[in-house]
């Protein structure tokens, strides 16, 4: 059965608190038992707690499938890009290296690419993906457009991304500010960025110790 069209995946990495619940829940999924397909990384561990939860974005024109020499990756009619078909995958690593979002993984000893398939065993029967059921901050949210609009007044979903000169549209949405100047997310524009955060100044201690405390903020 296909995933119902009115149920959509919305991601807002800005809300991620790095709790790892999604990582644990993901490995419970029946389609890749024991293996977590979510990538959860610290963007710049030395200076920031910012984390990057990344699931498959299910591209409309999936580069991973196009570069697969064995034709092992199929996109079902509901727009879900399935993980590699086991009889066909020849473990060439093309998909791992070509995916613009860096999603697929390679299980080297089994000669098999594995990736997030939006918990197809669950979503195809009307359930939510494992990660979205456990995410406490709803950085990963699976539901209807009405539900997300009611929850996030300041955000609007987009499914358009740019990588250099290449535009990619996806089934999965990412949340942008309603007032965002661009309708797409320019991924390569963040090439030189290190982390995103609010510059907080702790002045209590310096106020107490120094007369010229205002100039000694840390």
């Amino acid at each position: 059965m296909p995933v119902p069209a009115h149920m959509e995946f919305f991601i807002d990495p800005n809300r991620c608190i790095g709790c790892q619940a999604c990582v644990q829940a993901c490995s419970e999924c029946d389609t890749h038992k024991g293996h977590s397909m979510i990538h959860l990384e610290y963007v710049d561990r030395s200076h920031s707690v910012q984390t990057a939860p990344v699931v498959c974005m299910h591209c409309d024109s999936p580069t991973c499938a196009e570069v697969c020499p064995a034709d092992a990756i199929k996109r079902t009619e509901d727009g879900v890009v399935q993980t590699a078909r086991k009889p066909r995958c020849i473990a060439c690593n093309n998909c791992v290296l070509a995916c613009p979002f860096g999603v697929p993984k390679m299980k080297t000893d089994a000669h098999l690419m594995m990736k997030c398939d939006m918990c197809y065993d669950r979503t195809s029967v009307g359930r939510r993906p494992m990660c979205a059921t456990v995410c406490p901050s709803e950085a990963l949210f699976f539901g209807t457009r009405e539900q997300i609009e009611a929850r996030r007044k300041r955000s609007a979903p987009t499914n358009s991304f740019r990588f250099g000169n290449q535009a990619i549209t996806t089934k999965v949405n990412m949340m942008l500010p309603v007032t965002a100047r661009s309708e797409y997310i320019d991924v390569t524009a963040a090439m030189g960025d290190r982390n995103v955060g609010k510059d907080i100044r702790f002045t209590v201690l310096t106020d107490a110790l120094f007369d010229d405390a205002e100039e000694r903020t840390v």
Binding site: P13, H47, V187, R194, G197
Partner: peptide
């Protein structure tokens, strides 16, 4: 993966008035 998240954060930084910088 990191750039994807940073690019989204960049849009929010513009909205919220925070910066994108090395801390």
């Amino acid at each position: 993966r990191s750039m994807l998240v940073l690019a989204q954060g960049r849009a929010w930084a513009d909205e919220l008035g925070t910066g994108v910088y090395p801390l």
